[in-house]
């Protein structure tokens, strides 16, 4: 048991959430971060879906890693990811229909999410299943973290609500406050993402490159 949570494994799990975040440091998976973050609920569902898919795709590829012929490895990886995406998409349709309608094509497009192929190629092809699983969960949560932060600000400032519940009181609107329409547009997601990167880089000196 102690080996399962060794220091190295902890590192595999925690660095993608913090210092080597797939979105803010590696700048992967930006497209879906723009598309589904206008509200918190779809952002959380999206984050969880990606986490589950990365984790299990990592495990499956890691189990198969010694048998996959090198020349067709991308196709094999795609088949595994596509199968998992289809399962997740069907589960969402069955148990959370409203959210799956909101997410529309973006669940299907998880297959093109750069984080997935990146992790499979860079990690799962060289490591054992358990490490790969931790790496997948870590990367998925790192992705979900950014999505949730972006969605929090976009929903709060753009619609004055969180999880669809009105947060900004009616009296504010009567005093002349109004929702920021720009927050609901994709450009603002980029700017909030940039602010997160700005914040992280100013806190962690090792993220700043030397010119």
């Amino acid at each position: 048991m102690s080996e399962l949570f060794s220091k190295k494994n902890k590192e595999v799990f925690f660095t993608p959430i913090g210092l080597n975040n797939p979105v803010t440091v590696q700048v992967l998976g930006i497209c879906s971060a723009l598309a589904v973050t206008a509200q918190l609920k779809p952002a959380i569902v999206m984050g969880l879906s990606v986490t589950i898919i990365v984790a299990f795709a990592n495990v499956i590829i890691s189990l198969l890693r010694n048998t996959i012929p090198n020349r067709i490895r991308i196709i094999v990886q795609l088949v595994v990811v596509a199968a998992l995406v289809t399962i997740v998409s069907q589960v969402l349709k069955a148990f959370a229909y409203d959210v799956s309608v909101q997410l529309s094509v973006y669940v299907g497009l998880i297959i093109t999410n750069c984080i997935l192929m990146g992790r499979l190629e860079a990690f799962a092809m060289q490591n054992k299943p358990w490490e790969s699983f931790l790496d997948g969960i870590g990367n998925g949560l790192g992705y979900a973290k950014v999505l949730v932060i972006v969605a929090f600000f976009r929903e709060l400032l753009g619609s004055g609500a969180l999880f669809g519940i009105q947060i900004v009181p009616e009296s504010f609107y009567e005093m002349g406050y109004s929702n920021n329409g720009l927050m609901l547009m994709p450009p603002m997601a980029l700017i909030i993402c940039a602010c997160i990167i700005w914040f992280e880089r100013s806190r962690n000196k090792e993220l700043q490159e030397k010119n």
């Binding site: 109004s178 920021n180 329409g181 720009l182 927050m183 547009m185």
Partner: peptide, 10 residues
């Protein structure tokens, strides 16, 4: 531009 897209009604 920020004003225009954020608060179009104003």
């Amino acid at each position: 531009a920020f004003f225009f897209f954020a608060y179009p009604s104003k």
